[in-house]
Each structure stands twice: as structure tokens, then as C-alpha cells.
Amino acid sequence: MTTNYITDRHGIRRYMVTIEVNGIEYTRVIKANVLLVNFLRDELDLTGTKKGCELGDCGSCTVLLNDRPVNSCLILAIECDGMKVTSIEGLAETESLDIIQQKFVEFGAVQCGYCTAGMIMSAKALLMKNPKPTEGEVRAGISGNLCRCTGYINIIKAIMAASGQEAAI
């Protein structure tokens, strides 16, 4: 049972959580209503994860939670205690970009860039599970991420290219 909390003078409980984000363990004392997206953006200043709709409809806030893509706007940070989170900032090695990031730049899969972080995280999750997806699997894999700029076509091409394939669209 989670008992690791202190109560402030307004009677609000603050809980201690430890979350591994991009390979580093962070321990913070937070209110139970803190969402993972706000934990990343406000507590850790990892603003690469974006808020687009706050209701799990747009996918802009997608991060990997124990290697699975989730909408961080619908996850309580407290529920991530002891878990591993990867955000867009954790994808690239120090100097070189992840292959998906490279292909997004190369294929013009980025326009305004606001959906990009979430889109790349969904693509990453897909390719981790399925290194040679079909075009249909790529479309399905990013279908929880809305993009208003690109019409998705160059994004699909970029993800196919990141998996060493060419998209026939």
C-alpha cells in the first residue's frame, strides 16, 4: 500500500515517487493529481513532450512507459513509481540521432513539429516490437497520433525508411 506521503498544512497529501526517465532515476514529492506529462514538463523541464488535447485523443504527449507507448496526459505520475519512462529527449545518443529521427528530417516528415515527438515515440515503439512493419502496420502504429501539417505521407515514408524499407505511396 502506498503510504509514502506527507500531508501539507492544507491537508493535501504529497507522495514520494521514483521514476526512471531516460535512464536517470528521479525522486520527487508530488501531489497525487500530477499527470506524467506535467511531471516531465514541469518537474524535470523535459518540454519535448507536448500537450495537444489533454484527453488522450491526439497522441502529442506519447512517451514510452516500460517500453510501451502511452499518452502521458492520461497517466498519473504516482502510478509510474518504480517504472521506466523514455521521452523524446531520451531517444538520441549524445551525438547522433536515432534512425527514426534522422529519417524524419530526411523525408520531410516534420513540419510544425508539434506532433513530432509523440509521432516518433509511437514509431519507436512500433519498430522495437516489429522491426519490418508493413505500410499498413505503420499507419496503424501511428493512428493514435494526429498531425495537421503533413497528411502523414512523408511520416509513413520516413518510418518505412527507418526500418530499411521503401513505402509504395
Binding site: I88, E89, F104, E106, G108, V110, G113, A117
Partner: peptide, 11 residues
Amino acid sequence: PRIDGVPKVTG
């Protein structure tokens, strides 16, 4: 390649 491509794909 876009001049703002890398900052956008790395967050």
C-alpha cells in the same frame, strides 16, 4: 533538410 528539423525531432 529543414533548418529546424533537428531541434524538432529531438524535442
